[in-house]
Design a protein around this nucleic acid. Sequence first.
DNA 1: CCATCACCATTCCAAATTGGAATATCAGAT
DNA 2: ATCTGATATTCCAATTTGGAATGGTGATGG
Lengths: 294, 294
Amino acid sequence: MDKLACIKVFRHVARLESFTATAIELNTTQGAVSKKIAWLEGDLGFTLFHRNSRKISLTSAGKQYLGFCHELIEKMTLTEQLINKQLSLAVGTLKISAPSAFATQRLAVPIRKFLIANPEVKIDISVDDKHVDLYRDDIDIAIRASYLKDSGLKAKKLLDHDVCYFASPDYLKNNGTPVVPEELSKHTCLTYSLSTTSNVWQINKKKFVVRELVTSDSPEMLVKMAILGCGIAAMPKWMVQESFKMNQLTELFADHQKSSLPMYAVYKNSDYLPYRIRAFVDFIASYFESELAN
Amino acid sequence: MDKLACIKVFRHVARLESFTATAIELNTTQGAVSKKIAWLEGDLGFTLFHRNSRKISLTSAGKQYLGFCHELIEKMTLTEQLINKQLSLAVGTLKISAPSAFATQRLAVPIRKFLIANPEVKIDISVDDKHVDLYRDDIDIAIRASYLKDSGLKAKKLLDHDVCYFASPDYLKNNGTPVVPEELSKHTCLTYSLSTTSNVWQINKKKFVVRELVTSDSPEMLVKMAILGCGIAAMPKWMVQESFKMNQLTELFADHQKSSLPMYAVYKNSDYLPYRIRAFVDFIASYFESELAN
DNA sequence: CCATCACCATTCCAAATTGGAATATCAGAT
DNA sequence: ATCTGATATTCCAATTTGGAATGGTGATGG
């Protein structure tokens, strides 16, 4: 027997002080109401009503239990409404994970715009260059360079980075400047460990397996190592533009066609995706799209 | 579908993070668990778990709802236990209604003893000479002279009052002092309106229908009227003993055999009578029984 | 890369449960 | 004493539920 259904019937009966009237109000039969109350009393172990062929009245235990039932139903309704609201409106706290360089240099501005457009959303951004587990760490959205290999996740492409290759002038002086990609085999490279194919570089639609000297999950670390002359690295252009200007780094294969590095917003797939997640993903994707157009 | 049952299953699944393990723990099948969670999600309108052929994990909504479910089950268990405790132990507040003269002169002492013997019981005594409705006024126990005519009520006899007949010396001087009950027909009487047979007095096993001058639901009022010389009244002996001594009243038919007036403790009949009620009724009945023996 | 495994969803059918209608029962009202 | 209005009970049809088997899917390991 459905106890919750019995409780709902009980509230009606207590209010109307009649099984028959309750049956009419609930479009059922008096017998059904009687059975439900009787079952509930049996389950609880005490009687809810004093019965009398003419009328019924709550026992003291029934009165006390009724108070609990009112609380229960109200709390349940409110809780369910609250959760549904959080899923359907742009409210709540959005937990984002993003790699440090991208976060600070590319994400801060659009996040600020998003917050202005969605004043009821708070953002908790966790800057982490490691490959986070969205389930374990309870993250709503992760910004990732690598294509998703996780299951149960959806990804939306945000943009394609223009990748560029570079090394320090010092390194090139000591090891020679490669002019064609084929020469990469003579060099040591700095690779990004979280990329699915970290040691396979693609230039002019050809793939080159490079010799790794250092691999790291931190793009900034790799840039730093390149500046120190450890080898050749490949990174999104925006990340090293400043270093080119300061002559800390020299670009290689500048006129060759390079593969682009896509960036994704990854989020847990669900039938009822909290709206703040969808809102943010759509917002940030169209932000980068319009940025590209300019 | 029984939502409460689903919620209970949900708590297990959330803890074990597995439908299969839950099915084993609950001695059911994995399919049944799956159906229950699926139904609950449909009812709520949001998903509780992220699913993955290898494992499941709570969604953020699921996490939030789980907290509510824990609260709900705990509150429900505690409430039901509390009410059952109140019904099975001598705890709580006992609401007693008693007529004023009896309350003050006969009930105060045994109530004090009962409170000492049952320290967890509080007493709310409503002194009222009217015929109270135990249901409407939410009274646990009513002390009454009249035999119960109400249905749904049970009565336990506490004692038999020795009834005595009396009038003021003044009245007797003016109207003559009746020596045998047959002379009552020449007198006017003061009767107790709440008695079922207020105007039928029984002396020496014979019944006499008396002429009423005043009828009242207040015994003390009737005594006062008798003192003022309005007529002859019949009351329990203890109520007028003092007036005899002060010569405000004179006893009549002193050596005749008089009917006794029973006093009852009346309480609502119920399958699960709160224990404090049974305890009090038994206590007070045995108190008067032993008082009689002394 | 493919076979295997572990797990959840679905389907189908038998079994248990529920609800409706009629009937019994009960106590107050007339 | 009978009538009336209310709840309890009974019986059966309809619905719902649970179990077993099947299907589907993604992780794992050789």
